[in-house]
Structure formats: structure tokens, C-alpha cells
Simulated scan of single mutants.
Amino acid sequence: MIYTVTLNPSLDYVVEIDEMKLGGINRSKSEHMLPGGKGINVSVVLKNLGVPSVALGFVAGFTGDEIVKNVSDLGIDVDFIVLEEGMSRINVKLKAAKETEINCAGPYISQGNVEKLYAKLDKLQEGDVLVLAGSIPNSVPDFIYQDIMIRLAKKNVMVIVDATKDLLCNVLEKHPFLIKPNIHELGEIFGVELKNNEEIITYGKKLQERGAKNVLISMAGDGAIFLGEDGSVYESPAPKGTVVNSVGAGDSMVAGFLAGYLEKKEYQHAFKMGISAGSASAFSKDLATKEEIQKVYNGLSFVLDRKDIIG
């Protein structure tokens, strides 16, 4: 079974306006609300691809109740821990000439509630997949993902981590199956500005040297690069299409890669599925459907195997 962990889920209030006027009144053209958080997004896209998962994490208050209802209504199994105090956050996504996001802090999570999560994760078995995705509340230490991997070290659970800075760096020595930094996050880790694919590959390999088995690097409009534990290196330009909504595109890439890998146990196919799912969500108002992902996959111009260049 696949389990996704979203420590700080949200209700995402998506508002579309013609032009953002700071200091004035802005009237929306449309608005809608949906459950948010990187792990939840992964579960949604997996469900759309016909792959079941269980969504874990913390919820609180009436907003937490709405998150649980919304995720359950999508046909996803949920096993959230309900906090005694506070409320799950509402994040505002403004769609204008430029996308603007207001992400709130989220509720306080006590150590006792963290232990409840650990107890759930202790039940995972060999062959299960765990996706640790997204930011964490200030009340949770930066090494929580590392602690989870330590607890699961002897169970042979496949762990995927999509996080930034210390959250990501702290898990590398525990050898996650896959990490997915974007180009800016990769540059931040090493304090460099990455200017071309050769530099991206060089620094991606440094993450492998520090322990990551596979590294999937998203580059927005420039495509993506994958470095496999078998030495494979794949590149792909971004599929052609009109970007409608970039929120959730990276999470969709993780879900697509995972679904593709579980389907064929083949990195090139998994990479193509990741690229296709991420792009399909970017081209859609909401997270991509299976049909939208398959359409992009079928139209993907090429995936370059670096061995074709190196010889």
C-alpha cells in the first residue's frame, strides 16, 4: 500500500481576478475551494491514475473536518489524526497576471500527537511505499522526516521525500528511494545558481553521493532531469501546452513517477509518467485526470538518455 503524509494540510481557496490591485478592492471572477497539501495532492493524482493510497497527517477544527470530508469524497482512504485544539489552515491562491499565494502557519502539533503518527507508521510493512511531502508546522522539528525513516529502516519501505532545505537534506543519509527538488531548491542546497543541464546533473549527483538513490529534478518550463541509482540519466523538455495552474504540478510529477515505476519497474517509463502528470496538471484547472496525463504522455516528443550522447 502507498501512504502519503501531509503534516500541515489545508483548504486551498483559489480566487481568479483580472488584475491584482494592492491597497484597493479586488473582485473575483471565480473562486473554488479544494483540499491542499503536497501529500494530499499526490494521493489525488494517484487516485486519478487508478492507484490507491492512504492519506495521513494532522487536521484540526471545522476546516480539518472539511479537509477530511473533501479527501474522502474523492475516493481516497484517510487516516488523519484529529488535533484537540486549533484549526487547519486556509491557504489563498490568487490567479491574476501572476500567481500569488498566501500560505498560513497551521495548528500547533504536540509531541504526543507526533507519537500518534509514529504509531500509525510503525504498522507499515515491507513493500509498502511512504511519501513524505511538503512543509511542516513550526511546532514540528526539521528532523521529523529523518526520524520517520530511522523508525522504518529495517522494514524495507520505499520512501519518497519531496521537501526543501533541512527537511530534505536531513534524510539523505537514510537513502530515500526518490527525492524531488526543483532547480531552485537544488541551487539553494549548495548555494549556487544553476545555469545549464550539465550543472544541474553535477549537483544532482552530489545528492546521490550524500545518499539519495534516485533524484528527480523539475525545471518548470524547461522540463525535468532524472538521475537513477543504476547510473541512468534522462532529460526531457517540457511538453507543449498552455499553463493554467502551476499549483500541484510538482506533486503530480511525484505521483506520476511513482505510478509509472510501480507499473513497470522501469525508470524511463516512470520519468515519462512523471513529466506527463506534472505537465497535465499545469495545463488543467485542477489536478490532472488519467486521460489528460495519457494524452500528454502520448504526445511527449522525446526523453533523452544521456548515454546516447556520452556513448
Rank of each mutant, 00 (worst) to 15 (best):
L121F: 10
K29V: 13
L130M: 09
N138I: 00
D65Y: 01
S28I: 12
K123V: 09
G86R: 06
A105V: 14
L132G: 10
G127I: 10
A119E: 15
V51K: 13
C104V: 03
Y108L: 10
A97K: 11
I67A: 01
V129T: 13
V131L: 02
P107C: 01
V42Y: 05
G37M: 09
L132R: 06
P107D: 04
F62M: 11
D65G: 07
V68D: 11
V45W: 05
G75C: 05
L46I: 07
I90V: 15
D73E: 15
E31F: 13
E115S: 12
N41T: 04
T100D: 02
G64W: 11
E115D: 12
G39H: 05
R27C: 03
G39S: 01
N70D: 09
A60R: 04
F80G: 03
N48F: 00
I102F: 14
V78R: 03
L117R: 07
G50A: 12
V59E: 08
G37W: 06
F58D: 12
L94C: 00
A105M: 12
N41W: 02
M87E: 15
N103Q: 05
L117I: 02
D79T: 07
V54N: 05
L94V: 15
V42G: 08
G86S: 02
E115I: 05
I81T: 11
V82H: 13
E66S: 14
E126C: 11
E99N: 14
K69H: 08
D65H: 08
K120H: 09
Q111H: 12
L22H: 06
G112D: 13
G37V: 10
K29Y: 01
I76Y: 03
G86T: 09
S30M: 10
G64C: 05
I25W: 00
I25Y: 07
N113L: 00
P52E: 15
V92N: 03
N138C: 01
I25M: 12
P107I: 08
K116W: 00
G36I: 06
P107W: 08
K98C: 07
N91Y: 02
L130H: 04
I90Q: 09
I90W: 01
K116R: 15
K98Q: 13
L124K: 04
S88P: 10
L130R: 04
S53V: 04
R89L: 08
S72N: 09
V54L: 07
G24W: 13
M33T: 15
N70G: 14
I109T: 01
M87C: 10
V82A: 03
L124R: 10
S139F: 04
F58R: 06
G24S: 13
